[in-house]
Design a protein around this nucleic acid. Structure first.
Lengths: 204, 204, 204, 204
DNA sequence: GATGAATGAGGATTCATTCAT
DNA sequence: GATGAATGAATCCTCATTCAT
């Protein structure tokens, strides 16, 4: 009743060509967000930046929000994978090294598309009114919690869930603020060091 | 020094009545942001919620963005004042008490108008191209730095500026995420406690 | 849920100026329907033909369909009034005269805006999926039925409701077809005469 | 003589397979019109309902309007044939029986695809600028006129052409209104009876 | 000063048509 | 011949801004 027709939720991007187009569109959207910001992310601007027509956008996505949702999903997945990959590494030296490498990777990830991550943080591309942000934030927090529960490193926090939540929000916000504001007198190295200190002194 | 460069310089809100109207409008805008979100903050909705006409809005503000900018200014000022007030209090017991009370106040402040602060966070009302956010963030960070430099409490961080930056971003983001996402199983008290721990273990 | 906001169903056209604008828009819409047909009745074309801006259209009407609905309401009301006025006239000579004058008036009414009435017939401006047509058709049929029940003229049809229905549809369709197709060799006078015969020989 | 002036003349549907595809497409279009209405009759919906690809649609038809035109041609032809078949029947009892059987058949025909006939009525699929409707209406009217001129039944109308025109429009409109509006309290049988009365009392 | 009706540029979405495979 | 992905003009609608009263 809300939509005249509901078809089969657009093109099922199963064929590799379809999937490629979807990725192309998402990449275009990231470019727009990074260089021109959220308010510029109109359907025609996204189409233009992706090198496809507006019509094609709608061949692959239900509507504008669906693009942003998909982009969010993809980026959260990448973030989660990145963090997970660090935590399951066999080889590590000290807890501090591990923490530092995660922090540093996060900084790098954010720097690769600051505009995108600015929007993702807190506001979460605004689409599903909070659910999507919460759901994905939660996934990352869970990854951290599980690690805290199972690592042989001694963690002095009683409530691992809260600890994961606090640390994820803290590190993310600090790194993003760094990239977005570039406050004078604070280098990447220095900040990575300090944030790692924050994490380690809280956990151990 | 706050005059910005208003081409037509609009209403110089010198008369108290004018100032009152400006405040009324900002309050209306906050109400809209809190209850209906950013996408509802249209000029006519703000006018309606403020009890003034759209025309009057433009008597007091250059354009829509100017309203959001002014609101941002006001809220950052309040935050800065609140933090400052805590830090200059004569009476305090322990460093932990002080940190805890700041953290708690921040949580309260955010909870009083979550919609407003969600928008302010990182994105800075998306208006001023980061300058405004940076400027005000900087002011708060400076307040903290000065405190760290001058307090008789022993602070083990070498670079007080970075420490202030890291802590401000961390506490703010964590508290906001709490309010906006309300992750299950994390109470206000518990989180306040943990964040205070984060601050104290990093600083002392 | 269907609409983001529902306001108070637009401007309440109580002031005479508002009402005048509403009429202006409806008149513009009629002009478009008559001269360019239904497919040309786009919001911007209607606005243009009415001499107002698209924005103003939406100040007075919820959406495009609301314009067509209002127009239909107005035209049905006019038709009903016209028919009613004929039936309640004190002075008339014979049943045939009365029938003939109604038939003739209807032809004149349709000729005043053929494009509009073409659309109104059967399709009914398409908006409320049939309800509106049915409702108004019904009103006119009722007017006729009441007349048939109460007139001192002898009516030989048993079921006055069906008779009213049959006659209204027949006269309307024939007159409209005449205007829209202008079949060669059939003059207004001749057709009026024949249709009057159809009515009279059926009724009396 | 039906060749129209197809610029590129498309597929001359001489091969039986081509003709079959054309029919398939028209049938699909009818299904869409009946079940979903005119606004749903998009090229892709018609293609889907016909089990062919959009591309194939354009193999057989110049453009969308050509499909609707062809459909109109076909349906008018069927109607004309149906009426003709009744009129040339050798066996009939009374004039009333003949009239009644035509009226009833028309009702049945319309009921078999109401959505199609709603669109065809008066509006003539809104395609050809009235010419097509007129031409076909005229053909049916001519069939009737010829019958009126040649039948041994006594017809009391002087101008047989006008009589045919009036009756065709009247019967068609009444039957269609019945099907499209389904006014409460009017059964098929009752209406058929009344309309037959209308015809007979006018003619004889 | 205040008002709110009027304006129209801009944004989301649809769909007839084309064309490479 | 058949397919259906790609295209973009055309449509509905919103909302920041202006200006006559």
């Amino acid at each position: 009743m809300l939509h005249k027709k509901n078809k089969t939720s657009r093109k099922q991007p199963s064929q590799s060509r379809s999937r490629a187009t979807v990725e192309t569109i998402l990449d275009g959207c990231v470019r727009v967000l990074d260089q021109e910001g959220m308010q510029a992310a109109t359907t025609s601007r996204i189409a233009e930046a992706s090198g496809v027509s507006v019509g094609s956008l709608y061949q692959y996505f239900e509507n504008r929000d669906a693009i942003l949702n998909a982009l969010q999903d993809r980026e959260f997945a990448r973030t989660a994978e990145m963090i997970h990959a660090h935590l399951v590494r066999d080889k590590f030296d000290t807890p501090r090294d591990l923490a530092g490498s995660v922090v540093e990777s996060l900084l790098r990830l954010y720097r690769s598309s600051p505009g995108l991550h600015r929007v993702l943080a807190l506001e979460g591309l605004r689409v599903a009114p909070t659910d999507r942000v919460q759901a994905f934030d939660h996934r990352i927090v869970e990854t951290l919690r599980v690690f805290f529960e199972s690592t042989i490193f001694p963690i002095r926090r009683r409530n691992k869930h809260v600890a994961a939540f606090v640390l994820y929000q803290s590190v993310r916000a600090t790194m993003l603020a760094k990239i977005l504001e570039e406050p004078p007198g604070i280098s990447d190295e220095l900040l990575t060091e300090e944030v790692t200190d924050l994490v380690v002194s809280y956990l151990i």
